[in-house]
Every structure is written in structure tokens, then in C-alpha cells.
């Protein structure tokens, strides 16, 4: 955004003020996320930069909070770190346990949301679809309705049908998270399909492909980037969700956000910052994947990016 040559002094001042304002807002956006990273290496149990940290003294930094993540919940955290110590970690470490739960719940709810959502998006993008607008409104509504309301309703519903007694672990929470992820899948896949050239599938049909072959050989490869980024959205939604877990998850179905919630409410320690740092790294990886997929999708669809 270059300043035109005829700009008046007042406009010049405004131009630089404007840039300064934007910089400040960008700092406001990103600072809270970046600040937790160095603080998670704090050698002291404080939430602020110590003098040693500011002077880049190696003594000011340590990995003790990451270590705490492993040892928290162990039976003998101070035992010598041999084979049996690691076995204790795998068996008892609380954070590992909840991470495992998060991954299982996230994985299955993503599969459910992506499968059902993609199928529905294919139907919704057909021009023959009746009541398109109303159906779309219903399918998107889990994203709009406050989660606390959905969670309250599910709590009543699950206690009525006694889902805990069905003996399928994680079932209730997986279905709940899939419901929350579905709008994201619908939005991303219908967006991809809106740029889809339907003459391609007609061409495939005219060349003798049956509907199944057309779908797997022509349609699927083209919409795959959209489907994958929808799936990533659904996974992140589940991975980050805490209200549903608070309301309907069983005692052995606690997730990473739930454990963080506990940690923040009871006694906040820099170990939470270590978890936060790991999650920031995960979200950077996810963001990069989605960006790559988006560009790939645009290239496939022939939409050139500027």
C-alpha cells in the first residue's frame, strides 16, 4: 500500500499512524500465543519473565515443566529413570492418558463427521435438492447454537436413554463431537463443490463410467482437498472441545482440554504452559496443512491465486 505522491502532510501522518495501529492490532492477535512458548521453559514456577530469562542466562530456562507433564499422576516419579520408570509413565501418566483419549475421540468423531458430512454436501450441491436452504440451516445450526445448550440437552437425552449402560466406550462423547464438527465439514465441502465443474462427471458418464467409477475416479480426487480440510476442522473442533466433556463424558473419558480446565481452575502451574506450547505447535502444523490443501484445491479447480 504505497502512499501516493500527491499526499498531503496530514495524509502522510495518517498513513503512518494507520500502519502503527495495524501493527499494534497484529501484536494483540499474536502476542498471547507467542508469549506462552518462552514462559513454558521457565525454571521458576512463575508466569512472568525472570531476570535470568531476560538476560538469556541458560540457568533461567529449563525443561522441568515438560518433565512434569510426564511425571504427573505417576506412582513413583522419583524412581531412577530406567525401563520400569517408563512403564510407569505409560501406565499412569495423566497427561498421556488424556492425550490418548483426545486422539481416540477426535479420530472417530472426525471419521463420522467427515463421512456423513461429505455425503450430505454432495447431495446439497445438486441442483435438484429440495428444501436446500432449510436443510442447510438445520445442518449448520450445531455451530451456531451455544455449546452449553447442546451439552445440556445431550446430558438429559443421554441420561434418558442410559447410553453409559450400552457398554460402548466413548460412544456418547464421539457422537457429540461429531455433531459439532459436521457444520465445518459441510461448509468446506460445499465450498469446494461450488467450484466443481459438473460437466466433468457428465463427460465421465458419456465415456461409459458408471456412477461409482465417476465418483471415485473423477469427483473424489477433485474434492479431496476440501474434504481433508473439513476433516481437519472437525478434528480440531473435537480436540479443543471442553464443555461437552464437562457435561457428558465419563470419568475415564477425560481429554486434554478437560485436564487443562482442571489445572487452570484448581492450581495453575507452568506445566499448563508446556501443554499450551505443544498445542500451539500442533495448531501451526494443522494450519500449514490446511493452507497447502487450499492452494492445491485452487490449483486443481483452476482458480489462480492472484
Amino acid at each position: 500500500m504505497a502512499l501516493p505522491i500527491y499526499a498531503s502532510p496530514l495524509e502522510k501522518v495518517w498513513h503512518w499512524t494507520y500502519k502503527a495501529i495495524c501493527t499494534a492490532i497484529f501484536i494483540f492477535l499474536i502476542a498471547p500465543i507467542l508469549i506462552v512458548i518462552p514462559l513454558s521453559f521457565n525454571a521458576e514456577p512463575y508466569f512472568t519473565f525472570t531476570e535470568k530469562m531476560l538476560s538469556f542466562d541458560p540457568e533461567g530456562y529449563s525443561l522441568r515443566w515438560y518433565d512434569r507433564l510426564l511425571t504427573f499422576g505417576m506412582q513413583a516419579p522419583d524412581a531412577p529413570r530406567d525401563w520400569s520408570w517408563w512403564r510407569d509413565v505409560l501406565a499412569n501418566a495423566t497427561w498421556l492418558d488424556v492425550a490418548w483419549n483426545s486422539i481416540i475421540i477426535g479420530f472417530f468423531s472426525t471419521i463420522l463427521a467427515t463421512g456423513l458430512g461429505t455425503l450430505a454436501a454432495l447431495g446439497l450441491s445438486r441442483s435438484e435438492m429440495p428444501w436446500r436452504r432449510s436443510i442447510m440451516a438445520v445442518l449448520i445450526s450445531p455451530m451456531i447454537v451455544p455449546i452449553i445448550i447442546t451439552a445440556t440437552g445431550l446430558f438429559f437425552f443421554y441420561s434418558k436413554i442410559e447410553i453409559q449402560k450400552w457398554g460402548v466406550p466413548y460412544l456418547g462423547i464421539i457422537m457429540a463431537h461429531a455433531t459439532l464438527g459436521i457444520p465445518f465439514v459441510i461448509i468446506t465441502v460445499t465450498a469446494t463443490l461450488s467450484g466443481f465443474d459438473h460437466s466433468l462427471s457428465r463427460a465421465a458418464a458419456s465415456l461409459g463410467a458408471n456412477p461409482r467409477t465417476t465418483f471415485f475416479k473423477v469427483i473424489m480426487p477433485l474434492i479431496l482437498p476440501g474434504v481433508v480440510s473439513g476433516a481437519l476442522f472437525a478434528f480440531v473442533t473435537s480436540f479443543d472441545e471442553v464443555v461437552m466433556v464437562l457435561f457428558i463424558a465419563g470419568h475415564d473419558e477425560q481429554t486434554i482440554p478437560r485436564q487443562m480446565w482442571n489445572g487452570i481452575r484448581e492450581q495453575i502451574s507452568p506445566a499448563i504452559l508446556a501443554v499450551a506450547t505443544i498445542l500451539v505447535v500442533v495448531s501451526i502444523a494443522l494450519l500449514a496443512t490446511v493452507e497447502i490443501l487450499r492452494r492445491r484445491s485452487e490449483k486443481l479447480r483452476g482458480v489462480t491465486a492472484g
Partner: peptide, 25 residues
């Protein structure tokens, strides 16, 4: 803009707690 959007809600809330505390940044 997108990184905060993709970062866990609890992470963002935690970091605000760290920044806004009386002994915070």
C-alpha cells in the same frame, strides 16, 4: 490472523490469564 483462529481456545484463555495476572507480563 489464522494462527489464533486455529489455536486451542483454552490455550488462548490460559495465555491471557498469564498476561493479565497481577504478577503477570
Amino acid at each position: 490472523v489464522l494462527l489464533p483462529f486455529w489455536t486451542s481456545l483454552l490455550v488462548r484463555t490460559t495465555s491471557w490469564m498469564v498476561m493479565l495476572q497481577e504478577q503477570g507480563v
